[in-house]
Design a protein around this nucleic acid. Structure first.
Lengths: 184, 184
DNA sequence: GTCTATATTAAGATAGAC
DNA sequence: GTCTATCTTAATATAGAC
């Protein structure tokens, strides 16, 4: 491999793909090296903490991506139903139509550091809050909105797993299609 | 470690605990050895195919457990609501009140063999069928029963993940509590 | 900042004694 | 059927050249 440069953003996106495909324990520096085009020593230069630090950066990057593409757009002025449809399309792309596992799932299994677990929890709580707020904006009472928000994320996560086992993304697509009715 | 004997059933139960906790890739022969009390060479004596064969046996053992403790009891004569309540308590115990990940989830990530994927798919389809049948027995039309059955399993899987990330089993318990209304 | 080369540890897997 | 001992490969991690 000749000299290679890759932006921090691209590096994290490709690393996220590896972690989401193989899980935290199944991700090796060799696989990260192949996916990023950087030799292992170069990965250590950028992330002295190795795999654990990369996983933490992936979790924080996932939170940042959700903030920019889902949470913030949902806060802008406009029809809540329309904003939600846009957010759903972002999520559909994020999960590659249901074929790519969720970072929350694969990074939360035993093996990760407490910092990683904390970052995942922060990001998921922010997601629940974003969905709760849009449901409230659509007219649902506070407690019901919160319930529906959790239910929506549970459905996304669950349908990804059922779809993965059955080899069929139908369940995931149905879950996304039901979100507008669930969150309003 | 002195000589040790352990039944096939106990061996699979303890191995399942390791796989479900650390995932397929995170499960090493060393961890299986520690959990079962057998040296690595002894595990290879019983399972010449190594980790892959043990994972396959765990998947088949999970299917057998579900058949015996959930699917078959649901088929016996009696009030469907009462049978369902009993099945739910079995599932609650199986997931250790929501603290133990699901074998379908952790064994379906990339890394496993096609045989393993096939065994998981068979078991999950049987689970969907068992829930569909009990919903039909409760009076739901066939198509709706099938939809609710998938929804029930999606909720269980999703709530396990959300609960794991948030460090709170409330979502899982709520999912189980909602099953009777969902499947009748 | 990236590379080649290497050290160290752990994982998968087997041989052969008991 | 289980054990100790060993082999081979792969993983984490570092040193030092460019």
């Amino acid at each position: 491999m000749a000299h290679s440069t890759i932006s921090d953003e691209q590096l994290l996106i490709r690393s996220a793909g590896v972690f989401r495909t193989y899980g935290f324990e199944g991700t090796s520096l060799a696989r990260l090296s192949e996916a990023t085009g950087l030799e292992k020593a170069s990965l250590y230069h950028r992330f002295p903490g190795g795999k654990e630090q990369i996983a933490l950066a992936v979790a924080q990057g996932t939170h940042a991506w959700l903030r920019q593409n889902v949470f913030e757009p949902l806060k802008e002025p406009g029809d809540p139903r329309k904003k939600l449809r846009t957010a759903i399309e972002q999520l559909r792309a994020c999960y590659d139509d249901g074929t790519l596992p969720c970072a929350f799932e694969v990074l939360s299994l035993a093996g990760g550091s407490p910092e990683l677990a904390g970052a995942l929890k922060d990001a998921l709580q922010a997601w629940i809050k974003a969905f709760t707020d849009i449901a409230k904006e659509s007219g649902l009472p506070s407690a019901e909105a919160r319930k529906r928000a959790e239910q929506a994320i549970i459905q996304i996560e669950g349908s990804l797993i059922v779809g993965r086992v059955l080899g069929d993304t139908k369940a995931f697509r149905k879950s996304l299609d039901e979100l507008p009715a669930l969150l309003s």
